[in-house]
């Protein structure tokens, strides 16, 4: 959303910020009040997280709630607070690169079966 567009590549990064109606409960008066509502969403999701722990559901239900809520909060922060909804596609593409490594690390390292082959010498065959 930079407005310093003085070069020959002058790009209008200053967008009118429009929010999905369900996110802001129809509030369109100003971006500021819309952001306050997004904050309230984040508070709501955090309360859900804490309540889920205090209620001591089944393990997998708890995990589903915790990490599902974390992903939802991640989406709210990234999309609106970090302006990714309104930024050019290049920003989203750039942000997707580390996600690839994140997924690889989580699946190939974090959640591998204990005792599985995980050393580089064996994996690379030397």
């Amino acid at each position: 959303m930079s407005e310093e567009t003085t070069s020959e590549h002058a790009h209008d990064e200053h967008h009118e910020h429009t929010f999905p109606g369900w996110v802001t409960f129809g509030e369109t008066k100003s971006p500021e009040s819309a952001f306050v509502r997004i904050f309230l969403w984040l508070v709501f999701w955090t309360i859900i997280e804490v309540v889920a722990i205090l209620r001591e559901f089944d393990f997998w239900i708890t995990m589903g709630i915790l990490f599902g809520v974390a992903l939802i909060k991640c989406w709210f922060i990234g999309s609106f607070f970090m302006h990714m909804t309104w930024d050019p596609p290049l920003v989203n593409t750039t942000a997707a690169v580390p996600l690839f490594f994140l997924i690889v690390l989580f699946l190939a390292v974090g959640l591998t079966t204990p005792g599985a082959v995980d050393d580089w010498k064996t994996l690379c065959g030397f």
């Binding site: 930079s2 567009t5 070069s7 590549h9």
Partner: peptide, 11 residues
């Protein structure tokens, strides 16, 4: 602010 040709859509 500067814009590079390769990523010209953002500063």
């Amino acid at each position: 602010e500067a814009y590079h040709d390769f990523w010209s859509s953002i500063s």
